[in-house]
Design a protein around this nucleic acid. Structure first.
Length: 414
RNA sequence: AGACAGGUGGCCGAGUGGUCGAAGGCGCACGACUGGAACUCGUGUAGGGUUAAUAGCCCUCGAGGGUUCGAAUCCCUUCCUGUCUGCCA
């Protein structure tokens, strides 16, 4: 959630920032009004409560002293009745405020480039040259079929469309990648965690998936549980509603989880193959950082993900997202796009974001800064999306006969 | 899943209708003592909101609702923990 006090005191500036993310000034105007209304309603209610409390204290005193309480009782009853509409008003004001506030995306950093969509993203650098093929490289689904690696049909039979089954070498390669990623992240100082794959609504709200993006999530029937769309949710919320010691920052965490997404908004895109599935494996990095040092942590995370791709010999480029392409919670995001020679395209394989204090405010993650509590910064990034790495290896390491080499660094894991 | 017992501050633990945001202890922080430390003594030590304010006021004793002038204390719902039973890897 954005800082409502900041919005109140710097409306023009805040409004300009959120325009980059396509939030119109009218919505913000409304939010500002709702915030002021809540404050007003609370002030009125609290004054009445203070009155009530002090009279109640007197009441006890009178009784002890054996004084007559009839008059006081009448006053206190009247005040109590007068409080009912105030109570109602405050409650309504709060509900109205949060309905709007929780749906407002994070402020982008000032450095974020202007732009509408992915076409306006800015390439920062390319790493490794794509390999020159002396034959026509195949797309991963063709290679999958040749090698018997991915069983799309039976995945659909078991669940529904956009589920698949990895078989034999592919399944082993998937597992090797997970281990390779986790080991690498651990060597960089990330603690490895194994977390629940279902989280409750409060956690999903903490990281920003709820209430606005409920349709993208798989919900467990009759339970307050959702399948996680990314390990960002459990890892970030590990410290939900906690106050950390400053000395433990930055907290660096990594974990492997499957991720579950309904992907309601992406119908029709990437229907072929394994790019966009309802379930996929991912190794995630999450950092809880001191607000003054989150930029360093961010750079480190980007470098780590890039280094992993380099170690695998996969050509990629580093792209900074423009305002229009930034996710809901992110203040700044850098994507790593891996080269897919079969598709002749760079495709997203990792997305690293600094959410500043946006998630921390929602999830109430703070640290002790001297005597005061301050919100931390939270960061997350894939290192890496496993299925897409598998695809990238298939397409980049293919031979003319359709066979696939195993990258050197993975051999000890196979 | 069923039965019973519980959920109080960083931890332990008292508190069964008013003077309780909460005794006492431990821990922690600072200070005194010391060459330095231990011991001892003193002081301090929850979170959120409002506010210029670490002043005042409001809210929070798992969560939500109710009774009452007044609730940590009484009632209801719910979640969680423990023990036993069942089930299971």
């Amino acid at each position: 959630m954005i800082d409502l006090k900041y919005l109140q005191n710097n409306f023009e500036e805040a409004s300009a920032k959120l325009q980059k993310k396509g939030v119109d000034a009218q919505t913000l105007e409304k939010l500002k009004t709702l915030f002021a209304e809540l404050k007003e309603a609370n002030a009125a209610l609290e004054a009445a409560k203070a009155e009530q409390n002090s009279m109640s204290k007197l009441f006890g005193q009178y009784k002890r002293e054996g004084k007559d309480i009839a008059e006081l009782k009448a006053k206190v009853d009247a005040n109590k009745e007068a409080m009912v509409p105030l109570q109602e008003k405050a409650r309504e004001a709060e509900a109205a405020l949060y309905e709007v506030a929780l749906a407002i995306p994070n402020f982008p950093d000032d450095s974020v480039p202007e732009g509408e969509d992915e076409d306006d993203n800015v390439e920062l650098r390319k790493v490794l040259e794509p390999r020159a093929f002396d034959f026509e490289p195949l797309e991963h689904w063709a290679l999958a079929e040749k090698n018997g690696w991915i069983d799309f049909e039976r995945g659909v039979k078991l669940a529904k469309s956009r589920f698949s089954v990895l078989r034999g070498e592919a399944a082993r390669l998937e597992r090797a990648l997970i281990n390779f990623f986790l080991d690498t992240n651990r060597e960089k100082g990330f603690e490895e965690l194994c977390v629940p794959f279902m989280n409750n609504a409060q956690m999903l709200q903490g990281t920003g998936q709820l209430p606005k993006f409920e349709d993208d999530l798989f919900k467990i029937e009759d339970e307050d549980l959702y399948l996680i769309p990314t390990a960002e949710v459990p890892l970030t919320n590990l410290y939900n509603d906690e106050i950390l010691k400053e000395s433990v920052l930055p907290v660096l965490m990594t974990g492997y989880t499957p991720c579950f997404r309904k992907e309601a908004g992406s119908a029709g895109r990437d229907t072929r193959g394994m790019i966009r599935q309802h379930q996929f494996d991912k190794v995630e990095m999450v950092a809880i950082a001191h607000p003054e040092r989150s930029d360093e942590v961010f750079e480190m995370m980007v470098q780590n993900a890039s280094d992993i791709l380099t170690a695998l010999g996969l050509p990629h480029r580093v792209v900074e997202l423009c305002g229009g392409d930034l996710g809901f919670s992110a203040a700044k995001t850098i994507d790593l796009e891996v080269w897919l020679p079969g598709q002749n395209k760079y495709r997203e394989i990792s997305s690293i974001s600094n959410t500043r204090d946006f998630q921390a405010r929602r999830a109430k993650i703070r640290f002790k800064d001297g005597k005061k509590n301050r919100l931390v910064h939270t960061l997350n990034g894939s290192a890496l999306a496993v299925g897409r790495t598998l695809i990238a290896i298939m397409e980049n390491y293919q031979n003319e006969d359709g066979s696939i080499e195993i990258p050197e660094v993975l051999k000890k894991y196979m």
